[in-house]
Design a binder for these strands. Structure first.
Lengths: 94, 94
DNA sequence: TAATTTGGTTTATTTTATAAACTAGTTTAC
DNA sequence: GTAAACTAGTTTATAAAATAAACCAAATTA
């Protein structure tokens, strides 16, 4: 009746991150932090989890001598997000 | 940008319970247990939480000498569910 | 009358989310 | 030039949540 919701995506912050990245394709740490209104610590942890699951790719470099973390959603991430949305609809539509 | 998701509803089992009750208006413990594929212990705990939040009403009686727990969604519960769905759409629609 | 089943509740454990503390390098103010 | 503060994070600790395991009472069955 109710299919399981991907626990990796069923988390407010991680879902917000994926929601951002699915339309932007690429975003910086500080940008995501602002848009999701999260703390750096929490964001860092959740980005790592998404990255370890292969849902996004994280690139660490430097810009103007400051660390620059850039995130990009993967095909796997897009698929997981779409599947999550499809399953979620079982719960909320009717 | 991203409004907070009601933490009480952003839980797979509690969301499934509410999803069932919003269309059924009333259901028995064992029925919900079957439909949500949950364990009795977990269901009992989550029903209590929803009940304490005023999202549903629980009636305990007996039938054929066996305990009978019946649940019914409240107006507050319906409103909370609808609001949750509305907020969720911010995350999943584009 | 002892074991099993039904319909749960309570308690304990594991997992998760989140916040607090910390780090490394940079810029600014004195 | 050095102490204080800022940027951009990471790591660790704590709080909260989900879940499972253990338990209970009454009834039924063997």
């Amino acid at each position: 009746m109710f299919k399981d919701l991907d626990p990796l995506l069923h988390s407010q912050l991680r879902l917000a991150i994926m929601s951002l990245l699915i339309s932007l394709e690429s975003a910086e740490f500080t940008f995501i932090k602002e848009k999701t209104n999260s703390t750096a610590g929490n964001l860092s942890v959740q980005l790592d989890k998404l990255s370890e699951a292969g849902y996004l790719m994280i690139d660490k470099s430097f810009r103007a001598k400051k660390p620059l973390t850039t995130c990009r959603i993967t095909k796997k991430g897009i698929k997981a997000f779409e599947e999550y949305v499809a399953v979620l609809k079982q719960y909320i539509n009717k």
